[in-house]
Design a protein around this nucleic acid. Structure first.
Lengths: 253, 253
DNA sequence: CGCTATATTGAAGGCTATCAAGTCAGGTGG
DNA sequence: CCACCTGACTTGATAGCCTTCAATATAGCG
């Protein structure tokens, strides 16, 4: 363990949020493509993780952050009784392991949902590079900030009592993240199992499956396994019950 | 907005966690009494907030952290539809406003649950002081880290399907925090309303009330309004369903 | 081609939300 | 000081939703 988060003057940090609160809960803890080039000297290992292979385990010494380059990950925590709580799903460009930043050990496990290229940023390498390139402070700043946003959104979803609302909010969020990746936000390929999604939403897998079917019966979705097409984005958004749109284009930045 | 979080080498940061994960999810984003003395030059305003008075509002420019010196706060986020999600309750020694650190605006609202003395740490003042006293980096480090722990625990509570389990986990957590404050962990005075607690737990206030009554009927608790006595800590812990004890004394540090 | 894991669908029961009534405590004004 | 009022809490009844258990279907894979 070789570093810690400190506070420093970065006046240039007035970053991009022009709106506030929920409207800026844009999920992915992600960095842009151009930023990735700058990060190149930071990269440690680059390697392919297979389906179900762990990038790090709960309790491992926390030595690096990880960037998803392709594929997807899930993060989760386990309790001694054998229960598992899924904390999030992570798409290309997003960063995992931030929760281990201020700690000696990872609080949870990160595991590949499919064949995924993952780059490691060892903590030891991060620190000297940040001193050379202060602009990266802002990147890290935003990483932490967006990670907090992600967790906040998860909490808000879990606070909803109806299963339908929770699933709708998840799909809206996932579509928004796909849009950021320049994927079609209306033709989703969910990388996670129903079980993982159910855990994330605080429901049982049967309920998740049923809610998919109900939304399909209402012609809001077309569901075939992990392929989900959003037919009526307007009604999906209505189900969420807050005033948030599916896509955030032009709302800030 | 005058500062941001950056990463720097603080090798001495190997701090105290010897166990991992859930066993170290010790809630309060808090600092010790001795640390408070060191923070003295950081303090901006010190003043008394009355019941229901907001320390900061969702959307306000984020200019300071706040330390609870006496009394208690709740933090929450509101959505445009009028819904409110309570994010946490904050006891003396704990710090709120961390979520605004990397942002220009507060993501949520912090409001006093009773007459509370609150100290402000303006961001502008934090930065130069941190440069002078590197030891404080560690404090801030731990603040962010514990704030993350708190959110994680909240998520785990929300992931439970039975109302009884959620309430039991909350009470266990609250008792543990009281113990840290050298309060009797078995004689709790809950500062929040049933409505706020229900929102925090993702339930309705009626359900919370009923679960209190059920636990009282089972002689696990003695409940009289906001005064809650834990009669059978063993059975309360059993209800939680994970292997975590009520108190964490001696598990680390 | 079967095996296994995953997903869907069904039926039943339990749990929670909702609506409603009643209780209680605190605060205000008479 | 008391009556009233208001908000918070408790308790009850009902309906609806979700979980659970179970069976079936489907897909991936050797």
């Amino acid at each position: 363990m070789d570093f810690g988060i400190i506070i420093a003057d970065v006046d240039s940090l007035r970053h991009s949020y022009t709106s506030f609160a929920l409207s800026q809960v844009r999920l992915p803890t992600s960095i842009g493509a151009t930023d990735l080039d700058q990060l190149d000297p930071l990269i440690g290992d680059k390697r392919l993780y297979e389906h179900r292979e762990a990038v790090f385990h709960q309790g491992d010494p926390s030595r690096a952050l990880y960037i998803v380059r392709s594929g997807s990950l899930k993060t989760s925590v386990a309790d001694p009784a054998g229960g598992e709580q899924v904390l999030g799903f992570h798409l290309p460009g997003e960063i995992v392991g931030i929760g281990g930043l201020g700690k000696d050990f990872y609080l949870g496990t990160a595991e590949a949902l499919e064949s995924s290229n993952i780059w490691a940023i060892p903590h030891a390498r991060l620190q000297p590079i940040l001193e050379k390139f202060p602009i990266l402070h802002q990147q890290l700043q935003q990483m932490v900030s967006r990670w907090a946003d992600t967790n906040l959104e998860h909490l808000i979803i879990m606070g909803k009592t109806l299963a339908q609302v929770r699933l709708a909010m998840f799909l809206r969020s996932f579509a928004s993240r796909c849009d950021r990746l320049s994927r079609d936000p209306l033709n989703l390929t969910l990388p996670m199992s129903r079980r993982d999604l159910a855990s994330y939403l605080g429901l049982t897998l049967e309920t998740v499956s049923r809610e998919f079917s109900r939304m399909q019966a209402k012609d809001i979705l077309a569901v075939r396994g992990k392929e989900v097409r959003i037919l009526r984005a307007d009604r999906l958004v209505d189900l969420c019950g807050d005033g948030q749109p599916l896509l955030h284009r032009g709302t800030s930045e």
